[in-house]
Simulated scan of single mutants.
Amino acid sequence: MPIYEFQCQACGHRFERLQKISDADPEICPTCGEPRVGRMLSAPSFRLAGSGWYETDFKKDGDKKKNLVEGSSGAPASPAAAPAPAPAPAAAPSTGGASTD
């Protein structure tokens, strides 16, 4: 549930209230009793910072975390040098097509 901030226009008293969005706002000031309470617009009291959002920060140590800011592939935003492909194994010499099995 969201926390809303209210202020009485008569006495200036500010207070917060935890309520559902569908709940009615308080109309009477808890300090002076006047029916002149209004909802205030205020900034949230927390800040989200960091390099990005992860799919979950509570995965086990062996699980791979996927950074949602970097995209759905999980690849970093800056291109990294790709490793060279491994050479193909050499073909075994043929024995003339005859099988000894």
Rank of each mutant, 00 (worst) to 15 (best):
M1F: 05
P2C: 07
I3T: 14
Y4S: 09
E5N: 08
F6T: 05
Q7I: 14
C8D: 02
Q9I: 04
Q9T: 11
Q9A: 13
A10M: 03
A10C: 03
C11K: 07
C11Q: 02
G12K: 08
H13I: 08
H13P: 00
H13K: 10
R14W: 00
R14K: 15
F15M: 12
E16I: 10
E16D: 11
E16Y: 03
R17H: 09
L18R: 14
L18C: 07
K20S: 14
K20T: 11
I21G: 09
I21Y: 04
S22Q: 13
S22A: 14
S22H: 08
S22C: 08
S22P: 00
A24I: 09
E27H: 07
E27D: 11
I28L: 08
P30D: 08
P30A: 10
T31E: 14
T31N: 12
G33M: 06
G33H: 03
P35W: 06
G38T: 13
M40P: 00
L41T: 14
S42F: 09
A43G: 02
P44E: 11
S45W: 03
S45R: 15
L48I: 15
A49G: 01
A49D: 08
A49E: 14
G50R: 09
G50N: 04
S51N: 11
S51M: 11
W53T: 07
W53Y: 08
Y54Q: 05
Y54E: 09
T56E: 05
T56Q: 04
K64F: 06
K64N: 04
K65D: 04
K65S: 12
K66S: 03
K66E: 04
K66A: 05
N67K: 10
N67F: 00
N67W: 01
L68T: 04
E70M: 08
E70N: 12
E70F: 06
G71A: 06
S72K: 11
G74R: 01
G74T: 06
G74V: 09
P76D: 12
P76I: 06
A77T: 11
S78G: 01
S78L: 14
P79E: 11
P79C: 04
P79Q: 10
A81E: 12
A82I: 11
A86G: 01
A88V: 09
A88R: 06
P89S: 06
A91T: 01
A92V: 10
A92Y: 00
P93Y: 00
S94G: 10
T95Q: 07
G96D: 03
G96W: 01
G96H: 02
G97Q: 04
G97Y: 00
G97W: 00
G97M: 03
S99D: 12
D101H: 09
